[in-house]
Amino acid sequence: MNGLLGAQLRMIYRARGDYLAPVIFYVLVASLFPLALGPSPRLLSLIAPGVIWIDATLASVVAFAGLFRDDHDDGSLEQMLLSPRPLELIVLVRVFAGWVSLSLPLVLLAPLLALWFSFPPPILPVLLVSLVLTTGCLTLLGALGSALTVGLRHSLVLLPVLLLPLATPVLIFGAHAVLLAERGLDPRTPLYVLAALFFLALALIPKATAAALRVALEV
């Protein structure tokens, strides 16, 4: 599996321009809020968790729409399906490579965004932990959405409609953890729920994605 992951990461690195766009989108959208709402530190720190979450969700949806599109268009999906290796495992490798290349930059840029929103620095660890779990869930959901819409012409319009309702619980608990921490309360409960959601997704989604990919290639 290491070799497969290496090959995936190499392909992503060669096409790095395509993977940079969602990251730039993420930074640009966040930068619009202080401009539109005014630079009041109190207001900005109040809305920061919500803004960062909605922004990360939208960037993920945009980014993961095409997770399996290339594989479908160049025929390598057929070869993936004919591989004697479990398709779920290949999907998982793909999802992990997608997380490293698309979601990890979002997590790493979050402190920069937090700075713009005069976000209190002591809460940064909570922000980062919940963002890691949130983006993990979103990557898995994105993979499922991408597999369900692969081969459709208007997937970029359909995908948010499909994914955003599923992403809502993740958004609620992720943003709530940070809100609690901001108010000096214990953020662990929503973080545990978030972790539970992540592991649930990790257990179920690769199987569902593999099934969706098989259906997508049915005659």
Partner: peptide, 29 residues
């Protein structure tokens, strides 16, 4: 049991020919 060559090449445009061969080798085991 099956090797399939369809209308689509099934090769990755971002990989060189030799890397494509290595990738396919990883897929088929």
């Amino acid at each position: 049991e099956v090797a399939f060559l369809g209308h689509l090449e099934g090769i990755k445009s971002m990989l060189t020919p030799e890397e494509n061969l290595a990738y396919r080798r990883l897929l088929v085991g």
